[in-house]
Design a protein around this nucleic acid. Structure first.
Lengths: 355, 355
DNA sequence: CTGTTAGCGCATTCAT
DNA sequence: ATGAATGCGCTAACAG
């Protein structure tokens, strides 16, 4: 019932091979012939059979974009940008073209699902895979990832990291775009210290994540450099990268260390929860307690007061990852690029109360 | 170079057909044989060739989820929920299983891209497609969609709408889960009227979208029922569903109609921008102006003051759409279900100033 | 319960 | 520049 390439060939009075050639466009075809073929395609409303094409060519037009949390704009912005570079504009003709199918896969932060998606993508003979966000630091999982990625690369799949440091043991990766999480975290804490804060609480992300660790390390570097050693552990609380966690962790922190004058959150979403907790305790921001975030998501400027945070160029990074995945851009030297993080001073931070 | 099913068969000393059967699990196989085959699969590190499988079976394990804006949690929450129902748990074994590949495709609200993605999915012989969010009301596009969806359905692809009313001319759809946008909008405006507001501004979404129209209609129903006719047009401003638009539109609205005492926004993101604009004008929320949103996204409760809005059960709807797409749940009678919208009264709305 | 036999629809050699 | 032939790796009838 379904129209095949042979049907198109018959109608255009050419061989199937010729139809294939005009559709893939990688071969010289007389323009008159091409016209005829394209008209037949339209007349018959032909749609290429992807599986058959992929089987014969041993490659597909599928590109996977893995994200930790699709409901988090942090990933949404990167994924959308990458997708727009990969997907092409789309001519709306409904006709089969040479388009790639850029799709995003939500791992939910689960290492098992990450591996499963990679297998599924491998099974589809994906043209490329973009991995976004921080990686789990579990050695077993990292090893499994390295093996899996090597196999994918071996089968011709291009691999790009976006916002994630290069995985140890993986040279199969086309390029890794890493955010300067450490530097950004250092700068925001230095900002707080410069304002006069001495007791600074830290609401960290989930343990065993590269992003969490790098941001925490940057924070502690700044603290140490200012001679503010001591009880790092007691002013640090870990939790998931969500609003609820920021709320709970901050309540816990304020209970444990009532004399903190500033709270640094692992990201903006967590910071929002932290703000709610601070207010719940009857404290004002920034008069009684300063709060800082990370990422500079769109909503952060609308918080009241506007959130002091670190801006990550998520859209630009995602777009670049997309181009890298398509081979439209040459990889950075060494395959690794670090992407800067810029401090955004806003209303949620101020000098501590003098008392 | 790559391991094929035949290799596995040889190693397990069975026929290729048997290997296929244990892999697909839809057929009785002696457990001892199955063991042997699975061991061979592991030994050889075999991964099923998706394209070959799809070609032979005339169907793939791909499921597409179309969203208008992947950076918007409204879609992210639905897509994530749907994906979790479709993707299965994932055993992390890295082995080939019977998993579906649930992927989200970002149309960016563009009708061309919507159609293109549908073609790409059709080309892949997708098992199902979930379309989320409001639809464009352009007749030409609707007709094109109806045709395209009919073809997809014809080829065996299950179609589910999530948060979108049934498309005219489409009976190919398995089920449509529609949000009660009209009812929700009516209730929130009634709430404002009950508080004593008479001049209420409306910051609407983009024109020609079902969601925009239904919410606006609900709002106006409430206004009319309260005898508050009149200059609907002059207190209504349209714009995209984003923060910036809410900001700009509200500034425009306040300039045009300085005597409004309340602003209803098309959604929470827009409401956030509206809040910023209101403050920019030196007005307090809710003392000088009440602001209301729609959707009840996670950040809305953290706005200051907390946003009065209409709660949509996005996660539940997405999950249900996912189950429907998988055939794990029987469609509602008539294929259409309306999903309720609940008013959430919070701090951003209050009685108008008496002056 | 398992093996044998045929394609699925297309991209690619080779020819011409 | 085009046509003919071959096989990609797998599933789905059929047998047995």
């Amino acid at each position: 019932m379904t129209v095949t390439l042979a049907d198109v060939a018959a109608r255009a009075r050419v061989s199937p091979a010729t139809v294939s050639r005009v559709l893939n466009g990688n071969y010289p075809v007389a323009s008159s012939t091409r016209e005829r073929v394209l008209r037949a395609v339209d007349d018959l409303d032909y749609v290429l059979n992807g599986p058959a094409s992929s089987l014969a060519a041993a490659t597909s037009d599928l590109v996977g974009i893995l994200v930790n949390d699709i409901a988090d704009p942090f990933f949404g912005i990167m994924a959308g940008a990458a997708q727009s570079e990969i997907g092409g504009p789309g001519d709306g003709s409904g006709r089969a073209g040479g388009e790639k199918l850029a799709v995003v896969c939500n791992t939910g932060g689960s290492p098992e699902r990450e591996l499963t998606y990679l297998t599924l993508l491998q099974r589809q003979r994906a043209a490329a895979v973009v991995l976004t966000g921080g990686a789990l630091e579990d050695p077993a999982h990292q090893a499994a990832m390295a093996v899996k990625l090597a196999k994918l690369a071996d089968a011709g799949t291009r691999i790009v990291f976006c916002g994630r440091p290069p995985l140890p043991g993986t040279d199969a990766v086309v390029a890794a775009l890493a955010f300067d999480n450490r530097g950004g975290a250092r700068r925001i804490t230095e900002h707080l210290i410069a304002l006069g804060h001495r007791r600074i609480g830290y609401v960290a992300g989930p343990v065993e994540r590269t992003t969490t660790r790098h941001r925490l390390e940057g924070h502690r570097e700044a603290m140490k450099a200012a001679g503010l050693y001591g009880d790092e552990e007691s002013v640090t609380v870990h939790g998931p990268y969500d609003r609820r966690s920021g709320y709970d962790a901050t309540l816990e922190l304020l209970r444990r260390e009532p004399d903190v004058t500033a709270v640094v959150a692992a990201n903006d979403t967590v910071a929002l929860g932290a703000c709610a907790a601070v207010r719940e305790r009857g404290l004002r921001i920034p008069e009684d307690i300063s709060v800082a975030g990370f990422d500079d998501l769109p909503f952060s400027v609308d918080a009241v007061p506007a959130l002091t945070t670190v801006r990550l160029p998520l859209f630009e990074a995602g777009a670049r990852a997309g181009r890298l995945a398509m081979g439209k851009e040459t990889p950075p030297p060494g395959g690794i690029a670090t992407i800067g993080a810029e401090l955004m001073e806003r209303g949620s931070t101020a000098p501590p109360r003098l008392d």
